[in-house]
Computed example of a mutant assay.
Amino acid sequence: MVVSKVDKYLDEHNIFWFKINRPEKRNAIDYDVMSELCEAISFVSRNEKIRAFFITGEGTKSFCSGGDLSIFHALHTKEEAYEMLSRMGETLYSLCTLPVPTYAIINGTAIGGGCEIAAACDVRIAYSDSKMGFVQGNLGITTGWGGASMLMEKVTHPHAVMMLNSTKVYTAKEAKELGFVQRVISEEQLPLLHEEVKASSKVLRSYKQAIIMKWKQSQLKQRMLAEIEQCSILWEMEEHHQAVRSFLEGKK
C-alpha cells in the first residue's frame, strides 16, 4: 500500500491543515511534498471560505528536517541546485503571501529548511519539547529557500543574525525569547488552536493584505531570489558536497 506523503484536510472551523507525512524521513521535503504544498497553497488562495492555513508534521518527533538530502545530494552544479531551490523558494513566498493567516505548528524538531518553512508563516506555535535551528551553515551553505529574508521580517535584525550565524539549535523556550516562536504549548492544547483565528474569513483576509502590501513594497520576493542565488553558488562548492557526504555516511 502506498502511503501519502502529506495529509490535507479542511476542519470544522474552516482551517486548512497541511501535514507532512514522512516520519521515517523526519518529515523531510522531497519533490512530491513540494508539489503537494504548492497545490494546497493554490487551493486555499482560491477558496474564500477558508480562514487560516496550519502546517505541521506527522508525529511528535519532527516538524520538518528540511530538504531530503538523500535525494537532493544528486544535485551538483549551481544550475541544478538553483532549479530546486528557487522552486521551493517560490512556493514559500506563496505561503508567506497567502491571503489568510498562516501558522507553523512546530511539533518536534525543525531544522534547516524546516525553519525556513516556519519562517514563511505568520505565527509559530511550538510544542514545549520541540527544538529548532537554521543549521545550514554546518553543510557549507546558506538558507536555500529564502529563509533568511523571511526571518528578518519576523524577528529583530540582531536576533536573526544570531540564529543564522550560530547554526545553533534552540529550545522552544529560547526561540520564544528571541521572538521566533509566539506560543509554547503542550500536545493536549492542539484541539484549541482554532481559537487563534476567531474573526471571519473576510476580516482575516483583510488584515493579511496589509502585511502582504508591505512585503511587496519591500521587494521580499526579489530579496529571496537573490538569497537563493547565493546559496546555489555555495551549493556546488566541495565544502558543501563533503559535508553532505559526511552527514549521509554518519546516518548509515
Rank of each mutant, 00 (worst) to 15 (best):
K251S: 08
E187V: 12
D122V: 07
T142F: 10
L37R: 02
I185E: 00
Y207I: 10
R183F: 14
E195P: 04
T91I: 15
H13G: 08
D32R: 05
E239R: 13
A28I: 09
M163L: 05
Y82I: 09
L10V: 12
V155M: 04
D11K: 03
G59F: 00
S128C: 09
K61T: 12
I105W: 02
S4T: 09
W235G: 02
E80K: 04
A52W: 03
S149K: 01
Y31Q: 10
F16M: 14
L37D: 00
T171M: 04
S206V: 09
N107I: 04
Q209S: 14
K49T: 12
V184L: 08
F18R: 01
A52N: 01
Y9Q: 11
W235P: 03
Y207K: 14
I55N: 01
A118I: 11
A226M: 12
M237N: 12
M34D: 13
G89T: 07
A175W: 02
W17N: 05
T171S: 15
S94D: 15
I55H: 03
K168W: 06
I228M: 04
K216W: 08
E174P: 01
L98F: 02
C231L: 08
L234S: 05
D30W: 05
E236M: 11
L204T: 04
H194R: 06
L164S: 03
M163R: 00
M84Q: 08
V203Q: 11
M163P: 02
N14E: 15
K216M: 12
T109P: 06
M213W: 09
V203G: 02
E227I: 09
I15E: 01
V181L: 07
T109M: 14
D7Y: 10
A126L: 10
T56Q: 02
N27W: 04
V184Y: 07
H159A: 13
H240R: 14
W235Y: 05
V169H: 00
S232R: 04
R124Y: 04
V181I: 15
I71W: 06
S130F: 10
Q242G: 05
R87I: 08
G108D: 00
I29G: 03
S70Y: 11
D68K: 06
I212L: 07
D122P: 06
S42D: 15
M152G: 07
I185K: 00
S86K: 14
A104V: 10
I141T: 14
A175R: 00
A74R: 14
V3E: 05
T60R: 07
H73D: 10
T171G: 15
K176P: 06
P101D: 03
S45K: 15
I233R: 11
G179R: 01
L193F: 12
A126T: 09
M1W: 09
E79G: 06
A40R: 00
D11F: 08
I212F: 08
T60G: 07
C115M: 15
K198N: 10
L85G: 02
A110S: 15
K214P: 05
Y170K: 00
Q217C: 08
R205Q: 14
E227D: 09
E236Y: 08
H194Q: 07
S206N: 13
T143G: 13
G113T: 11
